[in-house]
Design a protein around this nucleic acid. Structure first.
Length: 790
DNA sequence: TACGAAATGATACTA
DNA sequence: TCATTTCGTA
């Protein structure tokens, strides 16, 4: 028991052992936030103040939820699997599945991810003959999600003008379409769950009585709807324990509302506000830089990090002439660090926008330094996987037009755009799904559509008794997807992903504890499991007929069929957002993606006006302050070494831009900086910036190159300034290929292979590689993205 | 229907 | 520059 609380500092200890009352924990970067959250849960359970079933813990990412469950499991001899620890969306999904009738949803409702939602919107607009130039589908999508996140249904949205009125109309039509198809988007998951609780007092009371302790991670990232949902769950006998850091709020652009922290403090009369300011991550100079920078923000709750670690190394600053020179310097420093014995995965290169990674990658490749880029497509977002999932969704729910439209002609079965349009018209006429409208379409189109209908019907019938992995395997085969990719020249990886999908299904079944032969499409009633919830509405009144019948998904996870569960899993957990895992490699990612991580050495690149702070942030209210918080997040990722760099010119979108160094340099404590290049005072160079001008003007295209806004035709007329980057010291060493014959390599397009020959040197260096799947190829090392593999 | 050419847009991103 | 989408023709 005491060892649970051992090694906590006084503030952490105070937070962990607070009474069951509203509390706000202001947890600075590297202050042991997660540890406090987990220890608090463990402590509550150990003290008998709570049991695993009375706790609700909410996070933003599946990763955070998994970490919490894993570490908790390690602290206590309990099974965390049934606990209500998860993301907002995951928990809402769970609640909606349990009370689908009260929520007005079909039992097999499915979840639209962002891409599905957009295609649903496009389909809707096409059907209504809406001009998508005037009303861009993406804008409508944003409008709808934004409204939902404010808790607004179409009837609640203020109509201000005709344009707005159209959007509201479309929002209404979209909701109806979703309802008819039995699908919900991400925002709907939250809003629907919110309404479920808001309109159903007995149910609300049930959950309020149940969740005595509600713990929220990253509270500064909650949006209005999430906060409202939490407030509904916070009843008289329970309390919210919110952990967050207003200085690390970097998601306002997607609806996060830092104001929730203040509101929480006021609305709940928070008596316990604890600041965790002891930092266990960074050395002194780094922390000083962070503190000093963030002090330039107004409207903070106020916090100052301290460390016992000593000053450590100063923050190194480098000014480069060009972006490629900047990259060259970074690679040099990285080599030095590696030579000093630092592991590659303890080194991170951070940038503000993804476009910046290319130059850096290129330089790393040439230098033969292995690296990993975070970001990009995740497993369940790959087209072949989404195709397969669409077939599965169609088997489960014939009304899902989004899934239908996706695969009706994939693989191609001669059903063209014309036929689909006819079908959509019929569906609208008869107010039914596209699948149901097939009999109404006549002629040749009707025949080929009929063929598709038969295929799906056959698949539905034949999978009726199959287990989930069998169903997935069967679907991949019978849909023709496997055959299609088999014959496709570049289809091998996709084929493998389809196989991987079958494996994922097998893994899912075993993780969820189903028997391997449990039918995928029936609700498996285990012994002792109770039937579906029984809350019935009578005369508009909602009533609990039989109190114990409010079924708790935690005790009965079988309210979902394995297939429905797997499909939600695919939507809610799209998989890793990381490139190839494994080998020891330098980590490349955006500053946003780095939040929550830490590295021994960190490079923050592209510190230029217009880039960081980003030019677009000048338009947004509070935009500059968010950029500054972003920089704060970036700095606080570093444990021992921090490098900050910028370049005078940068090739971006095919144009050379001349940038001015970021204002953030002037907001750092100069005594903690070590300039590796002479520091040039602002204003002493051409292009020096006027501090209070809108900084959109602070960067500009090539001097004498004319206005950049001259339209596309300028592209041909425009000759980019191709002056070569000044050679940097180790051009010579970069010339070494860094490869040897017989070495295993990885290529982003061709996959794994082995080097069979090397030729030439410097920029002409070539390697012959025998790829496992694509045969032997000669590759120019300066161009090909080859990564060494063990 | 299918393919290549031309046009276009480009901050950050989890569920 | 590059990835994606639309356009125009076979």
């Amino acid at each position: 028991m005491p060892e649970l609380l051992a090694n906590l500092n006084p503030e952490q200890l105070a937070a962990v052992t607070l009474p069951n009352e509203p509390a706000l924990i202001l947890a600075g970067a590297g202050s042991g936030k997660t540890r406090v959250l987990i220890t608090r849960i463990a402590w509550l359970i150990q003290q008998g103040m709570a049991s695993p079933s009375t706790i609700l813990a909410v996070t933003f990412t599946n990763k955070a939820a998994r970490e919490m469950m894993g570490r908790l499991q390690a602290l206590l001899p309990i099974d965390t699997r049934g606990m209500w620890i998860g993301t907002f969306h995951g928990l809402c999904n769970r609640m909606l599945r349990a009370h689908y009738r009260d929520a007005g949803l079909p039992q097999t409702f499915q979840i639209l991810d962002t891409a599905d939602q957009l295609s649903a919107i496009k389909r809707l607009m096409k059907g209504l003959n809406i001009d998508d130039e005037k009303y861009p589908p993406k804008n409508l999508q944003y409008f709808i999600n934004n409204a939902k996140e404010q808790g607004l249904r179409p009837k609640d949205v203020d109509v201000t003008d005709d344009f707005n009125r159209k959007f509201v109309e479309l929002y209404e039509a979209y909701d109806q379409q979703c309802q008819r198809e039995g699908v919900v988007d991400f925002a709907e998951l939250l809003l629907r769950c919110y309404e479920l609780l808001a309109h159903n007092p007995p149910l609300r009371a049930h959950y309020q009585a149940r969740f005595r302790d509600i713990l929220v991670d990253e509270f500064q990232d909650t949006n209005k709807l999430q906060y409202a949902w939490l407030k509904l769950l916070a009843g008289p006998g329970n309390a919210i324990f919110a952990v967050g850091d207003d200085d690390q709020s970097i998601y306002a652009f997607r609806g996060a509302n830092v104001g929730n922290m203040r509101d929480f403090e006021n609305e709940f009369r928070v008596k316990h506000l604890i600041k965790l300011e002891q930092n266990y991550r960074s050395h002194g100079h780094i922390l000083d830089a962070a503190n000093y920078l963030i002090a330039h923000n107004s409207r903070r709750l106020g916090k100052n990090l301290r460390t016992d670690a000593g000053h450590g190394e100063p923050v190194r600053v480098y000014e480069a002439a060009t972006d490629s020179q900047e990259a060259g310097w970074i690679v040099e420093e990285i080599r030095a660090l590696i030579n000093q014995g630092l592991a590659r995965n303890e080194i991170a290169i951070l940038y503000r926008s993804n476009a910046q990674s290319r130059t850096i990658e290129h330089t790393l490749v040439n230098a033969g330094v292995p690296y990993k880029v975070y970001g990009g497509l995740r497993f369940f977002e790959r087209q072949e996987v989404k195709h397969a999932l669409a077939y599965l969704r169609l088997i489960d729910n014939p009304n899902d037009d989004t899934a239908f439209a996706r695969v009706v002609n994939f693989p191609a079965r001669g059903i063209g755009a014309r036929s689909i349009e006819q079908l959509a018209d019929a569906a609208r006429l008869y107010n039914c799904s596209m699948a149901a409208a097939i009999p109404y379409v006549t002629g040749k189109a009707g025949t080929s559509l009929g063929g598709f209908a038969n295929l799906v019907a056959k698949m539905r019938a034949e999978t009726a008794q199959m287990s989930l992995p069998e169903t997935v395997e069967y679907t991949v085969r019978m849909s023709g997807l496997a055959e299609f990719y088999q014959n496709e020249r570049e289809g091998q990886d996709r084929l493998e992903n389809l196989q991987e999908l079958v494996n994922a299904a097998t893994a899912f079944v075993s993780e969820e504890g189903y028997g391997l032969d449990t039918p995928a499409r029936s609700i498996p009633l285990r012994p002792g499991a109770s039937a579906a919830p029984e809350i019935v509405s009578r005369d508009g009144e909602i009533e609990v007929l039989d109190a114990p019948a409010i079924t708790d998904p935690a005790q009965n996870p079988d309210l979902m069929t394995p297939l429905a569960g797997f499909l939600s899993h695919a939507s809610l957990e799209a998989g890793d957002n990381q490139a190839q895992a494994g080998q020891d490699a330098v980590q490349l990612m955006t500053v946003h993606a780095a939040k929550g991580l830490e590295f021994t050495a960190v490079f923050i690149t592209g510190l230029e006006e217009g880039l960081f702070p980003h030019e677009n942030s000048a338009m947004e209210a509070d935009g500059l302050e968010e950029e500054r918080r972003l920089m704060y997040v970036a700095i606080t990722r570093a444990k021992e070494r921090l490098y900050i760099s910028f370049a005078q010119s940068r090739l971006l979108h095919g144009q050379t831009r001349y940038n001015v160094r970021s204002r953030f340099f002037d907001e750092l404590p100069q005594e903690s900086l070590k300039w590796l290049t002479p520091k040039v005072e602002a204003g002493s160079r051409w292009g020096g910036r006027a501090d209070n001008a809108g900084w959109g003007r602070d960067w500009f295209a090539r001097p004498g190159g004319g206005e950049s806004g001259g339209g596309r035709r300028d592209r041909d007329a425009y000759v980019a300034d191709k002056s070569p980057a000044p050679a940097f010291a180790n051009e010579q060493r970069a010339a070494e290929t860094g490869f040897r014959v017989g070495q295993g390599v990885f290529h982003t397009k061709f996959g794994e292979g082995t080097i069979t020959a090397l030729e030439g040197s410097g920029t002409d260096a070539k390697a012959q590689v025998r790829f496992k799947r694509h045969g032997e190829k000669w590759l120019a090392l300066a161009v090909a993205k080859l990564q060494p593999v063990e």
